[in-house]
């Protein structure tokens, strides 16, 4: 269970890295606008919120408690 959580965490961070970096980034690094707001800005804002949601899910998942139990054994 511990390893599983660790792997999940690392995968999550990699995904987040991908989200915010080259090459996905460059897709949005263009001069297009939604409303008047550059698409890059919107992309970053949205991705950030998505990242937050992932973080909330990953943190509030039950496995942490299990790990606690393992630690106490």
């Amino acid at each position: 269970m511990i390893n599983n959580k660790k792997q999940k965490n690392i995968t999550l961070s990699f995904l987040l890295m991908l989200l915010f970096c080259y090459p996905i980034f460059t897709i949005f690094n263009k001069k297009t606008f939604i409303g008047n707001i550059p698409i890059l800005y919107i992309y970053i804002a949205v991705s950030w919120l998505v990242a937050l949601i992932f973080l909330i899910i990953s943190a509030e998942a039950k496995p942490f408690k299990k790990h606690q139990k393992n630690k106490n054994e």
Partner: peptide, 20 residues
């Protein structure tokens, strides 16, 4: 432009590694 935001996105990504 938006380059300054990298300083805050980094910690966000790091948060996912808080546990390990």
């Amino acid at each position: 432009g938006i380059g300054f935001l990298a300083i805050y996105i980094g910690p966000t990504i790091m948060a996912s590694l808080f546990f390990p």
